[in-house]
Simulated scan of single mutants.
Amino acid sequence: MVRGRYLAAVLVAIAATSTAGAGIELRDDRGVPVRLAAPAQRIVTLAPHLAELAFAAGAGARVLGVARFSDFPREALAIAQIGDASRVDVERIAALRPDLVLAWKSGNQAGDLERLERLGRAVFVTEPARLSDVPRLLRAIGALAATAPAAERAASAFEQGMGALRAQYAGARRVRVFYEVWHRPLITVSRAHMISDVIGLCGGENVFAHASTLTPTVSLEAVAAVRPEAILGGSRPGRDEAFTREWREAPIRALRALPVFYVDPDLIQRQTPRLLEGARAVCAALEQVRRNRR
C-alpha cells in the first residue's frame, strides 16, 4: 500500500513537470490546466483550509496572502489578509504579485477568480469533497511548489491514519448519528459531505445521508423522527459546554436523553490533515456509545 502511494506521488510529479525547462503544468478541479514557468514562490490562498494545506505541503514560507480566519498554523496569523473566502480583494491580491493563487471552487466567487486570471495570475481551483481529496491536494501543492517530499510525508501520514481507523472500526456496530454543523438555524450534512465520510469510517450512520442538499436545514422534530442514537457536532471552537447545554435543554424529550459529543469544528469542517484528529474524536465518541449500550 505504501509502495502504491509512493508511485502515485511520483506520477503526480511527472504529470506536473515534464522537464525542468518546460515549467509545471497541472490540471485543477475544474479540469483546467494550470501552467507555471517555475515552482511557485509567491502563493496566495483564498480560504483558511487552503492556507493550512499549503503549510502542510511544505510551502508555508511562500504564502504571502491569506483569507480571513486563516488561523492555523499560528504562522498564518502574521500573513496579510486579502478578504474572506466569499469576497476577496482582487486588487490587493494583484499587488502581492503572486505566481500561484490557490482557490476554492464552491467557496470563492467565480467572478473574482476570472478577474485574477485576466490579470495574468495562475489560479489553481480546488474542490475537496472526499477524504481522499486531502492527500491528493497536498501532493498537487507539493508539485506546484516543488515541495513534494514534505507534501508526500503529510499525505502519507493522513492516509495511514485514516486507514488505521477504517480497519479498527470496520466491523463495529453501526451507530445512528445526527451531526450538527450550525445551531440556528439547525444545519446538518448529507452523504455528499466529507463529515459523512468520517461518520461512516467510524462505523456510524448519518441519519440525514439521503438529504438532497449538501448541508440541509432541519427541524428538531425532523431530527427526532429519524431516531439518532447520538448527537455530535459543534458550530464554533471552544463552545463545548454550550453545545451540550443546548441539546440538554431541547424541547423534545427524546433528544434531551441522547448522548451528546462536541467536536471542534476546526478539526472536521476544514478539509485539511487535521481531519484525522477530528475523525479520531468522532470514532472515540461512537465507541463510547457502543460501550454504554452493551
Rank of each mutant, 00 (worst) to 15 (best):
A59K: 01
L267W: 06
T215P: 07
P273W: 03
E277L: 15
R274M: 13
T217F: 09
L26H: 03
R35D: 07
S219K: 06
P185I: 00
P39S: 07
A13D: 13
S132F: 10
V181D: 04
M194S: 09
V90L: 13
G203V: 14
A54I: 12
E246T: 15
I187T: 06
W104G: 02
A242I: 13
E52G: 05
R184M: 09
A59G: 05
S70C: 11
L96C: 11
D266W: 03
R253M: 11
R248T: 12
A154W: 05
R227L: 14
A281S: 13
T147F: 03
W182N: 04
L119R: 14
D89Y: 05
G142I: 11
W104C: 04
V125C: 01
A151G: 07
L46R: 01
A281P: 08
L267E: 04
L11R: 14
A157F: 06
M194N: 07
G171W: 13
R139G: 09
V177W: 02
V123N: 02
P259V: 13
C202G: 09
Q109K: 14
I199N: 01
G58S: 04
A257H: 10
R174P: 11
R130L: 15
S190F: 06
L53N: 02
R35V: 09
L116W: 03
R191D: 14
A167S: 13
T213K: 06
V207A: 01
T147S: 12
G120E: 09
E117T: 00
E277Y: 08
V289S: 00
R118M: 00
L46H: 00
R118F: 12
W247H: 08
E114K: 00
G58W: 08
L137W: 03
A224K: 04
V260A: 01
A281M: 15
R184C: 06
S86W: 04
T45E: 00
G163M: 00
G238Q: 13
T272I: 11
R248L: 15
